[in-house]
Design a protein around this nucleic acid. Sequence first.
RNA 1: GGAGCGGUGGCAGAGCGGACGAAUGCACCGGUCUUGAAAACCGACGACCUGUCACAGGGUCCGGGGGUUCGAAUCCCCCCCGCUCCGCCA
Length: 431
Amino acid sequence: MLDIRAIRSDPEAVKASLARRGIDTSDIDAVVALDARRRDLVTTRDAVRAEIKTLSKQVGRLRGTGDESAAEASMARSRALGAEADALEAAETAVAAELDALLLGIPNVIHADAPDGISDADNPVVEMVGDIDGFADHQRVPHWETGAALGILDTERATKITGSMFVMLRGAGATLSRALCQLALDRNADAFEEIRPPSLVSTATLTASGQLPKFADDAYAVERDDLWCIPTAEVPLTSIAAGEILDSAELPMRFMAYSPCYRREAGAAGRDTRGMLRAHEFDKVEILSLATPEQAPAMLDELVHRAEATIATLGLTYRIIEICSGDLGQSHHRSFDIEVYAPGCDMWLEVSSVSWFSDYQARRANIRYRPAPSADDPRPATRMVHTLNGSALAVPRVWAAIVETYRNPDGTVTVPEVLRPYMRGITVIGA
RNA sequence: GGAGCGGUGGCAGAGCGGACGAAUGCACCGGUCUUGAAAACCGACGACCUGUCACAGGGUCCGGGGGUUCGAAUCCCCCCCGCUCCGCCA
């Protein structure tokens, strides 16, 4: 959610930023009009209420002096004003609701340094490690074939048990998946508190991080209990401090969590249906930070570097791209994706998305902090925190890239060195 | 799921129709004292909306939502959450 004050004070600047997304900005004009109307109603209503309060106190005093008829007059006057206040209140509530609904649907403003562009085709590559042409024929086998041959990926039975776009890992494949989670957690445990959050969250929580109300179709709903399955651990982690006022000394806060992620993939039916490329349920380790606006830029760098470093230790070919204005998610202020190259299916797979949300999510979740007192401001006002997060590692696609990259001529798969401590002694899958 | 009790400021904890944004203690902040610190003392000290160049001023908030009343933290109704006991249970 954008800051209504920012919109009010310079609507053209907000519109200019949103225009970079290639969207219609007329909602901003509507917001400005509603906001003016709302403030008008508030001012009038408050004046009426102030008078009611004065009159009510008078009643008490007049009763004390025994002037019953004067008290009666004040009561009558106050009663009439009460009806007026109620009407103004109702009007204000209605306008405020309309304003909020509009505000919830307006995407975040874009960071000045984010590149311009229309679609994902315009996302610039900022770093590239490895050579996509440097693979042998035995590595040019899709992971779903290798996985089936080695008995570590069983999509047929997953489909039988649940339905299409669900996967099941077996044996060393399941262990490999869990090893990746463990690796990602261990590599970030130096600075991040490990959380095991709930996987089902309330509507308020899913709204706070930006998924609702606009993207309800993408989430699994547990309607009977009015709960939602999380599409990422970002959702519960963001809301850890919802409604709280943090001490500046506590910032930046850093959390990491392994969680299952549930996505209906409503807009992606029929895309990437093979193997582990896209599933309704998958595992991911997320890293997240609540920071001051001043700390945020460095934190964005840190998160990108941490995600990159984990991919790098796995020995995969990868690249980092920056998301252009037209491809940026609704809540995002600035984002970077890490993609690994999967030689078997010859595709770049997005395995991490690191984003800075500025105060967009914090305003929805109402997460504030109190800046440290200084000489000229001994009691500073509260400010919204900034939220940032990124996938430390999205398991299935990394799993796929490993199975393809590390496939040997005999069809077995060598386990990357850094994963071996978590593999119960398995060094070559299928050997 | 059933029964009982409870939800008040950062924390603890009074108040139970009018002078209550709310006693008191602790914490926090500023100051006095001190070589420095502690202690002591003095003062300040919630959030949000509105308003102002900035002050001032006005309003809302005592778990959430309705209601009664001239007036609600206080009375009534519904909901949510917590604790204790019972039931169920990995």
